[in-house]
Design a protein around this nucleic acid. Structure first.
Lengths: 343, 343
DNA sequence: GTGAAAGCGCTAACAG
DNA sequence: CTGTTAGCGCTTTCAC
């Protein structure tokens, strides 16, 4: 066992730096914040001391007076491919700024984002990015009055927060046209219908389902409408689809409410060889669907770009913008086929 | 535009609650912390006021004196399948406790975990879970002296932090035996060799590579040893493998240093039809490899379980345990084949 | 069983 | 240009 040298039991504080540099605490604080009114000589002395003492400001203490330089991102499911894309984009936008990003994951049994978002608020973040929050619009607006907030995914406008969404109606339109052009009429739609979820017509999956129903009806296929309830998660979808396939259900195409759902359909379909010609498509264009063996046809809404833009908007709000913005990003159809390679 | 009712410009504080309940601030604080010395009557009065005022304690202020009830998890890449598994497990272990989990993502160009971990420390978390941290062991040990810490992935022991790892040596052994039993001799290994990474022989990928080399040599296949450098990320692996395949490199089996690398190999292989019989295997058993169309043979080390155990160990440390623990979880070979289903 | 008061590390007036 | 000082909201002795 080696000897413990330099065990700093007490954290280095601004006071220590001030003493070391022979200046006042206020002076150190000013250097830290790049505030007005410090001589070059002083700045250098202070910086040297900061370096020497390995000083790092305590965010909690900072937060009690001013900013924490922290952006909070609330997400529902870290395993979801689209969310991963958003996070990657968000992280790239934060990089190089003085802000640090922290994530809070939805963690309660009620399937709501309240705790995840509140927990960020309690931690004094300077701004919140709520990714497809499971919360009442009014509640979110209330939060937005207290802290700069950008909401991603849900088509709710507010004068108090910004919103960035994909064009879900257009996305479903593109996909349905594609499937119908291929000659499909028995098109089923897998979506999330958990009743514990917030009933909000502006949530993307509700908009997608709505548009699916509308297009089917308009094409005279009302009788073929088949909305399959499953979680937005491939295992639950797999179980539900397997049950249905086993009961003889035979759509010619299944449109997943998101890519994970589509993957679950594939899992189930793999167990029914007579389903060889089933068309399976998804929504979101998460990374995984692009794998050559999967070759998922889907709708791209550029999650990375959305995450990046969202953070930019949030930073603008933190810097003082008050008029609210509503951004709808374009979507495009991505058609793929699976390339099989054994091994 | 609706009228803004109830815009609480100032946050509700413990002072407000005390006034509302007609007690002292200290009394409220005690109720909050379930501390000793409060009458039932008082507790109820206070709780009613907390409810009525929708009071939520400010974590920053709490942190300045006591705990923040926050667990910080530092990760390198949110898109990595194994990390996702670990997070899922960690989240399940945090659920139901009074702690809240926040994540910090590696975000610097230098490919080091210093900022991610320090940022958690600066935010006064009560404990840190460092997932495969890219940091000098001594540095991490220094952090561990200041805050309860559990390290997951790297085979470094310390008297100051706990460690939980998979049995990487055994994992590679299982996989190599499997491949050799299938008759393979031209087995290549894809791994991460970025020189900017911390050179630590205890990092899992280094241990895996080492064991791969050892087994090849022992089998008299020294000349066949082929370590392919690529990032642990499927795109980079794809590019490197495509280049190699195009140059005529034809191993009969490729062992990916992790699943993502294996997926990248598959992507590249899909472009070379004459590679039909190439055996591709991975390591980690991330969710995606189990998809029937992918059917990746890999080594399972139960990331969820690891994440769950890691959080449990961290909570124990926070509660006062000081003797350090080193846990190695078992691994097992998972063989799969891809089931093709067009669509 | 209860409350007054000190202080955590920092920022922001405000004096000098 | 620099230093003094008053808090931010909470927890924690320590009297009562």
């Amino acid at each position: 066992m080696t000897i413990d040298k330099t065990v700093p039991s007490r954290r280095t504080t601004i006071e220590d730096v001030a003493r070391h540099a022979q200046v006042s605490r206020a002076a150190v604080s000013k250097v830290l914040r790049d505030a007005y009114g410090v001589s070059d000589d002083m700045r250098e002395r202070v910086n040297r001391s900061i370096e020497a003492l390995q000083y790092r400001p305590l965010i909690s203490a900072r937060g009690m007076r001013g900013r924490t330089f922290t952006l909070g991102v609330a997400i529902n499911d870290p395993a979801n491919g689209f969310i991963t894309e958003v996070l990657t984009g968000a992280a790239s936008a934060v990089e190089g700024t003085q802000f640090q990003m922290i994530l809070s994951v939805l963690d309660d049994q009620f399937g709501s984002s309240y705790r995840a978002v509140e927990s960020l608020y309690d931690r004094q973040v300077d701004g919140i990015l709520a990714v497809s929050p499971l919360a009442e619009p009014e509640w979110l607006e209330g939060m937005a009055r207290k802290v700069p907030l950008v909401q991603l995914g849900v088509h709710d406008r507010s004068a108090h927060h910004d919103t960035i969404v994909g064009n879900d109606v257009e996305g479903i339109r593109l996909m349905m046209r594609h499937l119908m052009d291929l000659g499909h009429t028995r098109i089923a739609h897998v979506t999330h219908t958990d009743p514990s979820w917030i009933a909000n017509p502006n949530r993307p999956h509700i908009m997608r389902e709505h548009e699916y129903r509308r297009i089917m009806a308009q094409a005279g296929l009302t009788d073929e409408i088949d909305v399959i309830p499953a979680m937005f998660e491939d295992h639950a979808t797999y179980l539900e689809m397997r049950r249905r396939f086993a009961h003889g259900l035979r759509p010619t195409a299944v449109l997943g409410g998101n890519d994970d759902a589509a993957l679950g359909v594939m899992r189930a379909a793999a167990e029914f060889p007579d389903l060889d010609r089933l068309s399976i498509s998804g929504y979101d264009d998460a990374h995984f669907g692009g794998h050559p063996r999967v070759g998922l046809t889907t709708i791209n809404q550029d999650g990375r770009q959305m995450g990046r833009r969202a953070v930019q908007m949030l930073l603008e709000r933190i810097e003082g913008r008050t008029e609210s913005r509503y951004v709808e990003v374009p979507v495009r159809l991505v058609t793929r086929t699976s390339t099989f390679a054994p091994g």
